[in-house]
Design a protein around this nucleic acid. Structure first.
Lengths: 168, 168
DNA sequence: ATAGGTGCAAAAGATTTGCAACTGG
DNA sequence: CCAGTTGCAAATCTTTTGCACCTAT
């Protein structure tokens, strides 16, 4: 997730993506909203297909890219460097603690870090300072699985099933 | 950079990489040590070639991968998700503020964040909590360049020239 | 009508892997 | 000797692009 507060908003209202309301964009937006957790572009595309909604993979990428540019989604990277998107539960950017095993995530309070980051930025001489912060671990539910075998209980490929915010 | 303190070290001494001392590994290790800043596997490979040291690209990747596994390097991801490695100036993991334009980096004090992360980890029910934290901005030296044109003054491709820790 | 969007296939990159040849201990 | 390493080429995988064809507005 990127903190882009220092960039003055281009429009008065919350940043828009594109200028036309198309079937595809609406679909991607809705699908993203339906996922309580982080999903990759590929996953989102797969989900749409499954439900019978045809949207080109490139369109999914383009849409997510614009959402990211507009600061309308929280972004996180998986182990391989790929991007995972999530519609922020509340306004503004957030940071998460996500399970390396099941990919469920929970938001964490980052007041402390936000202030710390600001302080560092001020004294640095750098402008447009943004930050990325991610916490990963193994949630209680996944611990037994991980303890007996290294391989994560869920691969990126089956990540499209079962996305909920970790209730633990 | 990944905080792996909670994983008990497999060996008594600082983790080793591999079991044989080969010309290639020594070369990669040395080259990495010569870079005061973050470099990608590709860059490191290019640098070695330039100096006339032949090491296969895959070997560079494999070596860096092992170093990462052993916690002997700080890792950061570039915009595209690629990995950038840096030999930690001091023991333990560190976090950086790096210039999006020239890629120079400077370590920042993360006492506050480290403690915060520990606290979050404790109350979460998650085990093996690790964190990733990155600050990016535009350093004073690069500001004029960035102000007049969006494109970064330095591309990943020419990143192999001129690596110094930002003195600003 | 027409600029903005879309889909497909091809391109681009970064990283990984299969495998036969090589080598440090 | 021989398990650990290496290099090359081929394979993966994710994300981006070129382009001709659509379609909100």
């Amino acid at each position: 997730m990127r903190d882009t507060r220092q960039e003055a908003p281009r429009r008065t209202r919350a940043a828009e993506i594109g200028r036309r309301r198309t079937r595809q964009r609406t679909a991607v937006l809705n699908a993203l909203g339906d996922c309580a957790d982080f999903v990759s572009a590929q996953e989102l595309h797969a989900r749409l297909s499954t439900v019978g909604i045809a949207v080109g993979l490139s369109t999914v990428y383009r849409t997510l890219h614009e959402l990211e540019r507009a600061g309308r989604v929280d972004v996180v990277r998986d182990e391989a460097g790929g991007r995972l998107y999530r519609q922020p539960p509340a306004a503004g950017h957030g940071h998460y603690l996500l399970c390396r095993c099941c990919f469920r995530s929970r938001r964490v309070d980052t007041e402390v870090v936000e202030r710390w980051a600001e302080r560092i930025a001020e004294g640095s001489g750098y402008t447009g300072v943004e930050h990325t912060l991610e916490l990963t671990g193994v949630c209680a539910r996944c611990q037994p699985a991980v303890t007996k075998g290294e391989p994560p209980c869920r691969q990126a490929s089956d990540r499209l099933t079962d996305h909920r915010t970790c209730p633990d």
